[in-house]
Amino acid sequence: MSDIVSSEKRSRMMSNIRAKDTKPELILRKGLYRLGFRYRIHDKKLPGKPDIVFPRYKAVIFANGCFWHGHSCHLFKWPSSNEEFWHKKINRNKEVDKANIEQLKKMGWRVGLVWECSLKGKHRLDSEEVIELCAQWLQTTDMLSIEIGGQC
């Protein structure tokens, strides 16, 4: 099946998709800041340049887009055009994510994943609930990781 828009328009649309300062990331940052958490963003010294870095808690949070990271939720659907390219790209993203998380854990960092579907879509959680879950995780040093997705 061919695309419903021209390749030029598709290229323009794809180039407008942000890698940083996404809506889910901003929701998390603003909510956690409001609760008194201080952080750095996109630390290039850490594997994967985590979206939010909490040095005081030796913790990082990735705000992952469900499509780009191949999450198994209602927001992810394999594209029907250029299938080989997308399978290769998304599977590579998943491999890189896994390697970055392993490396961060080996360095002693705690890793949190907040999926886009937890803050957007028909199965989303209340944003304040997501922020509170992240805050509790940050303050509980015995939990090495957390993953928050939408309700199934």
Score class of each variant (00 low, 15 high):
residue 17 I to P: 03
residue 16 N to I: 00
residue 116 E to W: 06
residue 132 E to P: 05
residue 97 D to T: 07
residue 139 Q to R: 13
residue 4 I to S: 15
residue 57 Y to Q: 11
residue 31 G to A: 11
residue 70 G to W: 06
residue 140 T to D: 15
residue 140 T to I: 00
residue 58 K to G: 07
residue 106 K to Q: 15
residue 98 K to R: 14
residue 77 K to G: 04
residue 111 V to A: 02
residue 128 E to A: 11
residue 10 R to F: 07
residue 57 Y to V: 04
residue 146 I to N: 05
residue 66 C to N: 06
residue 103 Q to P: 06
residue 61 I to H: 10
residue 24 P to E: 06
residue 149 G to N: 07
residue 145 S to H: 14
residue 111 V to E: 05
residue 59 A to W: 09
residue 118 S to V: 09
residue 135 A to P: 08
residue 9 K to G: 02
residue 95 E to R: 07
residue 58 K to N: 06
residue 41 I to Y: 04
residue 127 S to N: 13
residue 110 R to W: 02
residue 87 H to M: 07
residue 150 G to M: 01
residue 48 G to W: 13
residue 103 Q to N: 10
residue 145 S to C: 13
residue 22 T to N: 10
residue 134 C to H: 09
residue 80 S to M: 01
residue 27 I to A: 07
residue 3 D to K: 07
residue 150 G to T: 03
residue 37 F to T: 05
residue 102 E to F: 14
residue 22 T to P: 11
residue 96 V to G: 03
residue 94 K to H: 08
residue 62 F to G: 05
residue 14 M to C: 01
residue 69 H to C: 15
residue 144 L to P: 02
residue 16 N to A: 10
residue 106 K to H: 09
residue 16 N to P: 00
residue 38 R to E: 11
residue 23 K to E: 15
residue 75 L to S: 09
residue 128 E to L: 13
residue 61 I to A: 03
residue 102 E to R: 09
residue 44 K to A: 12
residue 95 E to M: 12
residue 17 I to K: 15
residue 142 D to K: 10
residue 110 R to I: 08
residue 72 S to C: 09
residue 86 W to K: 10
residue 114 V to A: 12
